[in-house]
C-alpha cells in the first residue's frame, strides 16, 4: 500500500486489469461495481468541490470519516500506539478491545472504543459488549443522550434476528465482526442486518434510525470496500489488516503516526473520488444503504437477493 506514503489517491495509466473472473480470492465485494453519474445526474468534481465524508454513530459520536481501526490487539505495539494517536488526530475511532489503556493513551480516549468493564471506559467514545458475554451485562438505555456509546460486537451471521434483538435491547450501535467467529460473509451479514432493521418498526419509525451498523473484517482492503459496505448498510467500516500491511515495517512511533494519518487521508480522498464519480456530495446521508448506486457483475441470484443489489444492466 503506497497510500501510507503519499496521502493522495493512487493514479496509474491504462485500463483496469480487474476481471470479474473466478480466480481465487475474488470476493463478493469484488463483484460489485459502483455507479458513475452522467448528464442528468451530474457527477461532482472531487478535486474542486466539497464532498462530506463525516458520519455520525449512535446519534452522538461524530467522525470525520467512516473508518474504524479494529483488532488493535493483533498489531505490533508501535503500530497500535500509532493507530490510537492517528484515530484521535484524524477523528475516527480505534477499537482497543481488552487491552489496557496506558497513561500515554489516556488523552485519546474520546476516539477509543473499549471493552465493557475496562478502566476509564466511562470517558471513552464507546463501550463494547461482546455478544458472547451479553448476559452478564446490563445496558442502561436511559443515558442515551450523553456519555459513551454502548455497542455490541457480534459475529457475522446469515440470520439477522439476533441483530434486531440487540437493537431492541437499546444498544446504540452493532458491530458486525467477521473475525469474531463469523459464519457468513460480512457483505451478506451487513446487508441482511440493514434490511431487517429498516423493516422493523418501533413507534412507527424504522429501528434502523436508532441504531448504527459498523462492519469489521480483516478482509477489507481499501476505500472501495468501505464504500461498497456502506452501500450495503454500514455506517462505519473497520480496517485492521489493511493498516498493518500499509505500515509494514515502520518502527519509529512518529513515523508510524505520520504514515497512519496519511493512510487515513488517502482513503478519505479515494472515498471522495468514488462519491464524486457517483454524484454524491454527502456519503453518510446518500450512500449508506443506497443499493441503487451499485450493481453486481457475475454474482449468483441467491446472493444478489440477500444483498438486494441489482445485476449490471438492470
Amino acid at each position: 500500500m503506497e497510500l501510507a506514503r503519499s496521502s493522495d489517491a493512487l493514479v496509474t495509466g491504462m485500463g483496469s486489469g480487474k476481471l470479474f473472473g473466478n480466480a481465487s480470492g475474488v470476493t463478493i465485494l469484488d463483484r460489485i461495481v459502483c455507479d458513475g453519474a452522467q448528464v442528468t445526474r451530474p457527477s461532482i468534481d472531487p478535486y474542486r468541490e466539497p464532498i462530506e465524508t463525516g458520519v455520525c454513530i449512535g446519534g452522538r459520536l461524530r467522525l470525520s470519516a467512516p473508518f474504524a481501526v479494529s483488532e488493535l490487539w493483533k498489531m505490533k505495539t508501535v503500530i497500535k500506539r500509532a493507530a490510537v494517536v492517528a484515530a484521535f488526530s484524524m477523528n475516527i475511532v480505534a477499537y482497543l478491545g481488552k487491552d489496557e489503556v496506558t497513561d500515554a493513551e489516556r488523552p485519546f480516549l474520546p476516539n477509543l472504543l473499549l471493552d465493557y468493564g475496562q478502566q476509564f471506559s466511562e470517558h471513552a467514545a464507546g463501550i463494547v459488549v461482546n455478544s458472547k458475554e451479553r448476559n452478564s451485562v446490563r445496558v442502561d438505555t436511559d443515558s442515551k443522550t450523553q456519555g459513551p456509546l454502548f455497542l455490541i460486537r457480534m459475529p457475522s451471521v446469515d440470520d439477522p434476528t439476533a441483530y434486531v434483538s440487540s437493537a431492541l435491547m437499546g444498544f446504540d450501535a452493532i458491530i458486525i465482526d467477521e473475525d469474531y467467529d463469523g459464519l457468513t460473509d460480512i457483505e451478506i451479514a451487513v446487508s441482511e442486518a440493514d434490511t431487517a432493521l429498516r423493516k422493523y418498526k418501533l413507534n412507527g419509525r424504522p429501528l434502523r434510525d436508532r441504531v448504527s451498523i459498523m462492519a469489521f473484517s480483516s478482509r477489507i482492503r481499501g476505500a472501495d470496500d468501505v464504500f461498497k459496505l456502506m452501500g450495503l448498510g454500514a455506517d462505519c467500516v473497520g480496517l485492521s489488516q489493511a493498516a498493518t500491511i500499509a505500515l509494514g515495517n515502520v518502527s519509529d512511533l512518529n513515523e508510524a503516526v505520520f504514515c497512519f494519518e496519511n493512510l487515513i487521508l488517502s482513503l478519505q480522498r479515494e472515498l471522495k473520488l468514488l462519491a464524486g464519480a457517483a454524484g454524491v456530495s454527502n456519503i453518510f446521508t446518500t450512500v449508506v444503504g443506497n443499493r441503487e448506486l451499485f450493481r453486481c457483475i457475475g454474482l449468483e441470484k441467491r446472493i444478489m437477493q440477500k444483498l438486494r443489489i441489482k445485476p449490471g444492466g438492470a
Binding site: 485500463g15 483496469s16 461495481v33 455507479d35 472501495d224 479515494e270 468514488l274 457517483a278
Partner: peptide
Amino acid sequence: FGAGTGASPLVVKDNVGL
C-alpha cells in the same frame, strides 16, 4: 469497464462502471 486511460485513480478504475 476496463477501457484505457492515460492516468486515472486506481480506486475508480477498478470499481466504477459496467
